[in-house]
Design a binder for these strands. Structure first.
Lengths: 151, 151
DNA sequence: AAAAGTTAATTGCAATTGCAACTACTATTT
DNA sequence: AAATAGTAGTTGCAATTGCAATTAACTTTT
């Protein structure tokens, strides 16, 4: 499934890839079937909703959701067109823009979540126990920590 | 990072997404820097190399690597143009095509692997221990098993 | 064995993505 | 304070992707 080796870590990586692809495909399908926007939109809405003041600098958001800047420009365009967020000029730095989630944006996030959550539960949560989940979560957290540490 | 909840499983899912995106971005970068083709090409080459006779029906391959069929048609076009695989008519089913990895394809896979592997080790393997890896791997395997079971 | 239904692969087209400029501004150096 | 370097965001363009429709061949039903 991956390589000419049987290292448990290599195995885990290969299965991580396969799991990710398969679950994301299913989740996107469920969202589309419910006439809801894609996962990427949810991520943006969620980050903005979490942020202090419900707004974030674009480049800041781009980093959090690991998206290229150009990509975020256009993703933001779409969300803005849909009325789910607004651009707002940044007073300190005239190059910059904040993205600010609108009420419609918050409502949309709330509407997406149960559908998304149901998929996570059915496909992911129900197949593992809390202990496994914790081990996984901790492992991912170390990996992400190391990644952000070295640069 | 994900939702208004603190269930360890929901947390794990969110971290899985973040980890996946970040690592794939890094790996693709490393491959591009080494003038090597992308991960998707590796997957195709690997599956073909593993397969009995070193060939696979397209729709069979599409399922394994979770890729839409139309997508695979064009991915195969590119690999074929690059001389890494060949299409071969299927004797039983005249609709079908086998994809057959060429010697150049095998050589390319061998060339990609050390670069890919180095990234997996640095970014993933080095951050977790064998026990964690095994728990993760088993968890992913159950999830994938459940997915394939229900349909 | 003809008709209706499936499946394999491809294609056209629209949407998304990524990369490399480009513009506008801020920060640093001299 | 001028010159240089760096950063934020956008845009053009080419490559990739996904969806729906198409073609060709196989399978099941009647």
């Amino acid at each position: 499934m991956m390589s000419p080796e049987t290292d448990p870590k290599i195995r885990a990586w290969g299965l991580l890839l396969a799991t990710h692809t398969a679950l994301v495909e299913r989740i996107e399908l469920a969202l589309a079937n419910a006439d809801l926007p894609a996962l990427a939109w949810y991520d943006v809405l969620w980050e903005l909703e979490q942020a202090p003041e419900r707004k974030l600098r674009m480049h800041d958001l781009a980093q959090r959701i690991v998206l290229s800047r150009s990509n975020l420009t256009r993703l933001a365009d779409r969300l803005e067109t849909a009325g789910l967020l607004q651009r707002e000029a940044c007073p300190n730095d005239r190059r910059g823009n904040f993205l600010l989630i609108t009420d419609a944006g918050r409502a949309m996030r709330k509407k997406i979540w149960p559908v998304y959550r149901a998929q996570i539960v059915a496909l992911f949560s129900n197949q593992i126990d809390d202990k496994q989940a914790t081990v996984m979560g901790d492992g991912f957290a170390s990996i992400l920590g190391a990644l952000n540490a070295d640069e």
